[in-house]
Design a protein around this nucleic acid. Structure first.
Lengths: 347, 347
DNA sequence: CTGAAAGCGCTTACAG
DNA sequence: CTGAAAGCGCTTACAG
């Protein structure tokens, strides 16, 4: 704080009222005479007075702050934050501001209990949790949070028995639509890149959608078409190089994320295959780059704007003691050039 | 805060010491016997105690928080935040965490004095300011900040008489290198897209670098080759459509930003021109998409990682009463396919 | 090395 | 509608 900053006592003196009245006027209490309030507000403005938040927070035991915690896979090295989360940041801050909350951003995760600290230290009234490296190590943190009765909302799928509430997108349905689209344009040997078992429930849900779509289209599941990948471009490259190296034949590829898909496209093109002529590719997320790569990537879009708003709204409800339901938002298939179908609705 | 949270008095009681000693032990004061400290720390851990930050902040008149203020041009509508700033966010939070600071993010700018509020309300010890819509309206805000003796560091160029300190990249030099490269591969009629006069000092510096490079290469400046544009893709499209519509001939194009360059490339390709065969294109910023477009965009890279670190380090120095110098970091030309030169150093 | 005490600047019951 | 007063949970001079 600026030293010598003016306090509510200074305003009180200038206005000829008690400090309590200044506080009431500033908070809009109905128990202050309108003219008195006006006079106080005017003086406060003139004297450049702002309520000291530390004092107010200490007194009210609230911070009017939300902590946005990013458990990102890539935190250590040249951390390129997952572009998908970055997109959500704008809508989260806007939504928070509209409800009178500030947003504290944290990527760090040095201590095991760092996520709990925020609430226990009165730094934040609630937490928004985006991303997780590995679900297996992430899950216990959620349990610790729930046990501490923290207010938190998770971005992610609805998972049986998972503590807390979440906002997510229907990953299974999005994958189903993506793969059904590939089947609909005549692709018969469709690979899935991004198998990550229980370490990533979202990818797993996308795998389930892939499988259901194959069944629905009367196509056989083949083990060799289902390969693992992390959420990175490099991983997508490696996966496709693996497929090509093993001589696996495929004419469609559904990647569990755009980053994987973009890597996959690189590897396909490097291997002399044309997209979409030889292989149709579909991704998931609709990150900004998806529309920029060549050919433009068909993908499943999650509405980050709505998502951010919903995350904040639900968290604030929790903070204010209301009940909240986990939500799944419908995904939307964005058809571009990478799968070779006539554009249904382009961006 | 969680109600019924444990306080330092609870720890004191459990440890059989005074509350003052608990506070000292937790802050690492040397005036606590080591064994006492250890015992207190252990009990604090067991009892899940965290220092109440509101109380500590009120007492110390510090918040150990940095506010990151984004004055973005596109805040109103479907605000896609400038991807360049988003990139910096990661390194800023990391650098801040390493120095013991949290980061509060704000895009809002509803009130005129919102930037000053942060410091006056003891929410933040200092401000990091990124981006500005229009320099003409932005400048007075900087003056207000300086007059209020706020601690703030600006991301941007060094500008004569500008209040405060800044960290930026040598825009003039970056532009000079970009355009010199275009001239070096034989381009003679090089357009500049992004003329914004004094409303954007960065773009203006890039224009100056463009001019110097033309002179250096013995090329004439031509008014019709220098067109205005905002920092958006649409603006880049419009600018090139204007050039093509007016029948202006050019074989090189330097855009004041990657977003403009990407729009320009779209418009060139839509107009039937091949890149780089007919026109070589260079951008500025090296946003993630620059490497993904086709052909990959040659551009001037600003090191966001170093930038973020420097911004935070300087701000913390300011907060701690040290003096600080404005800095310009050297830019780096990243040669890719869009200008048709043999790659010097690719990414 | 440790404790008792003051005080940071608010908000809000309580009393009028 | 307004004021006097308590107290939120710390940190830190002061005294020992």
């Amino acid at each position: 704080m600026k030293q010598g900053a003016v306090t509510s006592f200074d305003i009180a003196q200038a206005a000829g009222v008690s400090q309590a009245t200044v506080s009431r006027a500033l908070r809009g209490s109905s128990r202050v005479r309108p003219e008195t309030r006006e006079r106080i507000l005017k003086i406060a403005r003139e004297m450049n007075y702002y309520v000291n938040r530390s004092a107010a927070n200490l007194r009210t035991q609230r911070s009017s702050t939300i902590a946005l915690l990013l458990f990102d896979e890539s935190t250590d090295h040249e951390s390129e934050i997952n572009p998908f989360f970055l997109n959500m940041l704008g809508s989260i801050t806007t939504a928070a501001a509209n409800l009178g909350y500030e947003v504290l951003v944290s990527f760090q995760q040095r201590s095991d209990d760092w996520h709990i600290q925020y609430e226990f230290s009165n730094r934040a009234d609630g937490l928004l949790i985006l991303g997780y490296g590995d679900y297996v190590t992430y899950r216990p943190k959620l349990e610790a949070l729930a046990e501490a009765k923290a207010n938190f909302i998770i971005w992610g799928p609805i998972i049986e028995d998972q503590p807390g509430h979440s906002v997510g997108c229907d990953n299974e349905l999005g994958a189903f639509e993506a793969v059904t689209h590939l089947a609909g344009i005549g692709r018969r040997r469709i690979a899935f890149v991004g198998n990550a078992s229980q370490h990533s429930p979202e990818f797993h849900a996308r795998l389930l959608g892939y499988r259901r779509a194959l069944g629905h289209a009367g196509l056989a599941e083949r083990d060799e078409l289902c390969v693992g990948a992390d959420n990175t471009e490099e991983s997508g490259i490696a996966a496709v190089e693996g497929l090509l190296g093993a001589g696996v034949e495929f004419d469609g590829l559904f990647a569990a994320s755009d980053q994987i898909a973009i890597g996959a496209m690189r590897a396909l093109q490097a291997g002399g295959l044309a997209i979409p002529r030889d292989v149709s590719v579909v991704g998931f997320d609709d990150i900004p780059r998806a529309a920029s790569v060549t050919p433009a990537l068909t993908t499943v879009q999650q509405n980050t704007r709505t998502a951010g708003k919903l995350l904040v709204t639900n968290l604030v409800k929790l903070i204010e003691g209301e009940t909240v339901e986990s939500t799944q938002m419908p995904p939307k298939l964005i058809v571009r050039k990478s799968c070779g179908a006539p554009p249904a609705r382009n961006t």
